[in-house]
Design a protein around this nucleic acid. Structure first.
Lengths: 208, 208
DNA sequence: CTAACGTTTGTCCAATCGGTCAAAAAATTG
DNA sequence: CAATTTTTTGACCGATTGGACAAACGTTAG
């Protein structure tokens, strides 16, 4: 009957250590570009030892992806039609930007997966993600009908928020290179936050 | 003295064929995720035959990247302060969106490179790209001083245009999955164009 | 025809890959 | 302590990889 056999303290610790190292490696090299040896090195253990905790490279990656998705969609879940629409959207943009700042590795892991055609999470995109977006698009559409925000395509609005915020994680090296060492430092996320708020609220047309 | 020995007709033809096949393969699998055999298969020739035209996998990739960058920055080059600022920016957004539609493979190749830390093009980002952005940021800053467009950060404005347009190439499978088979079709770029124009011009705050 | 040159491929090689295994080393339990 | 279980590792395996090479094939010029 093979009971699950609850994990020892060492097991949970080491598994966590491996997952953190693997996130480093996978997020910068992609799945195929990463080797078990690299991950084992980064985790400070031998390859067979790593394979004692995870039965394959796929297994590590799958665990990582699954965990990622839970936290990744949380900000979108939080959108509801209770508060003020513009405040709600501003808060969503801010949360997404904070995630790009605080969890850039997760963002890049996700980007790598999508770039390569999402072979491992396609069903999830068409299922859970699509219905979540559909649901939030309806809320946004309601705001538009009530004249609370401008009339536009709610789905492309969501895309544009994803794109602009995740850009600071996924294209980090480019952003840093262009801004130079001065503003490539810590201030760039504050600058981005200010800019995005203005863009999404009022656009570029000058006031008159 | 080893003259360059001008290439035969077959050589230029086959090299082009290989580059096209390699663009397919590299853009969906990344550099390390792609094999010479895959590229050779896609080009309809044997591996040694391919290596007769390019001396290594690196060589193919480098050629591809170099070529990409020439065309990739062309739209940004075209921005000047002769025309009307808002029209100029609208045109830039449109051109970038058309490139995402017509050259998605190039966009993904670039994204893959940046995601992995831009190991092969870092100097170019800090040199050519940075100075080009600096130059255009100055033009945009001028428009802002003249009150032609709203006061904001010109560099983050450029980032947001890159992010929102390239998103439709790099995250294509996600966009399609979320929009569903109906709007995942051909119309999505038109929808995106309409949405982005409104976003960048007037934002989301309702008119009153 | 034949010599010269450009093109193509089958075969091979060393390095690296994901993963196995048995045996040693630690840790835990009685 | 000894017995048992968990953890760690060195050695190894078959498959895949990037690339080399020489031989074969094709084409063209004399």
């Amino acid at each position: 009957m093979d009971a699950p056999a609850k994990p020892t303290r060492i097991q949970t610790q080491k598994r966590e250590l491996i997952l953190d190292a693997a996130l480093d490696v996978f997020s910068t090299n992609g799945f195929r570009g990463s080797t078990i040896d690299q991950i084992a090195d980064a985790a400070g253990m031998s390859k067979p030892n790593l394979l004692y905790y995870f039965k394959s490279k796929e297994d590590i990656h799958a665990t990582l992806i699954q965990r990622l998705l839970e936290t990744w969609l949380a900000p979108l879940h939080e959108i509801d039609d209770i508060g003020d629409p513009l405040t709600e959207l501003k808060a969503y943009i801010r949360r997404k930007l904070e995630m790009a700042r605080d969890y850039p590795r997760e963002s890049r892991l996700f980007a790598n997966e999508i770039l390569q055609g999402a072979p491992r999470i396609m069903p999830l995109l068409e299922g859970e993600l699509k219905s979540l977006v559909d649901e939030k698009a309806l809320i946004i559409k309601g705001w538009m009908r009530d004249g609370k925000i401008a009339q536009t395509d709610p789905r492309h609005l969501i895309f544009s928020i994803w794109a602009t915020t995740q850009h600071y994680a996924d294209f980090d090296v480019q952003v840093r290179a262009v801004l130079g060492p001065d503003r490539g430092g810590d201030g760039r996320f504050d600058d981005a936050a200010r800019f995005l708020e203005q863009l999404f609220l009022d656009g570029l047309r000058p006031k008159r």
